[in-house]
Nucleic acid binder design. Structure first.
Length: 346
DNA sequence: ACCTCGAACACTTTTACCTCA
DNA sequence: TATGAGGTAAAAGTGTTCGAG
């Protein structure tokens, strides 16, 4: 690369100067750390002891998730990387690259994304973006030139260029990512003002901030889905095991009944099985009209052994814990007692 | 009721970077 | 040590939905 070794100044006004080749090496470590941090939730930015993300994964009660917590090692790497690295990869290494046209487009872009058209025009008038793969995001220094020719510009728009910069991937700096993370903890969505402010603060385009938040929300949702899936799996295992146990118990009772008909005369608790769902329930103590088991009209959870709760307020759809804390999933003997907690701890 | 616009989302593509043979 | 394949995560593109005006 022609600019390898060129000194670059960090965005965010930190003024840290590193050599480009050092940055390349550091970036790998940074990305690994960042990935780990995102994978494992929000345990980043060591300054915070107990981060409370705006959109947080609901770690359901009683579920020992196998995910490793964000280790202090991770944070240490994170901080190390932050302290040694400072190259804003989105910053063009040279002002001369963008050209006067891009500089003219800068002001439009700074106002809003409406400047994308101007930026695109500027991009078309300028040669390839720098081979470093960065496109300028420093509003104070150079114009905003989208990789493919501006905001919302299709990447294929540059297919006909001379094999140059078709949608270069931009890596946000650690500082930028951390700042965005912090913002995300406060609010998972941004209003236009916040977006603009963040963009300005980070020397990014508003579109970049917007995309980052979109992707971040998607990651959060994905993680939540994984958590829910894991919880459902465990619940399924628990219910299967419980079902097995009850079947066995029932078989034993039936055997006992045939061997010792004496027990038939016992007036106390007897068991009845719902023919539709094969759920066994006690009917002796239940008052008239009280349903011993889930209603047959229960939605799919009942069909899968996941009984609907008798208390509607416990049926928050967003909480699998509430769903599975239903008393119907408890052993017969415990059904009349208060529900201790959600199943499946490990 | 219909239209327009913008925001959010789902899905996909592209890119950068890592690991490993 | 260099290198290419394969995998992965993130940035970004595209189309759809939905609510407000």
């Amino acid at each position: 690369m022609a600019d390898a070794g060129r000194n670059l100044v960090l965005g965010l006004g930190m003024g840290v100067v590193v050599r480009r080749d050092e940055e390349e090496a550091e970036r790998g470590r940074r990305d690994r750390d960042a990935r780990r941090e995102l994978e494992f939730g929000t345990g980043r930015c060591g300054a915070r002891s107990s981060p409370e993300p705006a959109v947080r994964l609901t770690l359901l009660p009683g579920l020992g998730l196998p995910w490793p917590p964000p280790s202090s090692e991770t944070n240490r790497h994170h901080l190390e990387a932050s302290s040694t690295r400072g190259f804003d990869v989105n910053r063009a290494p040279s002002l001369s690259v963008a050209g006067a046209g891009a500089a003219a487009a800068q002001e439009d872009e700074e106002q809003d994304e409406a400047g994308a058209a101007a930026a695109a025009a500027a991009a078309s008038s300028s040669p390839n973006n720098d081979s470093a793969g960065s496109f300028p995001t420093d509003f104070s220094a150079q114009g905003q030139v989208a990789p493919g020719g501006g905001d919302r510009a299709c990447s294929r728009a540059s297919d006909d260029d001379d094999g140059g910069s078709a949608r270069k991937k931009l890596r946000l700096s650690k500082e930028q990512s951390a700042f965005l993370e912090e913002s995300f903890k406060e609010h998972a969505t941004l209003n236009p003002k916040q977006k603009l402010a963040l963009a300005k603060q980070l020397n990014l385009r508003p579109r970049q901030v917007e995309v980052w938040f979109q992707n971040r929300r998607a990651r959060t949702k994905l993680k939540q889905t994984e958590v829910d899936c894991e919880y459902l799996k465990r619940c399924c295992e628990t219910l299967t095991e419980e079902n097995r146990r009850l079947q066995k118990e029932l078989a034993e009772l039936r055997a006992l009944k045939t061997v010792h008909p004496f027990y038939m005369h016992l007036p106390a608790t007897t068991l009845s099985m719902c023919p539709s769902c094969e759920r066994v329930a006690s009917n002796s103590a239940a008052p008239a009209g009280a349903a011993p088991a889930a209603p047959a009209s229960s939605p799919s959870p009942a069909a899968t052994g996941i009984a609907a709760s008798s208390a509607p307020e416990q049926q928050r759809p967003s909480s699998f814990a509430a769903l599975f804390s239903s008393p119907l999933n408890r052993p017969l003997a415990a059904q009349a007692q208060p529900q201790p907690q959600a199943p499946a701890t490990s």
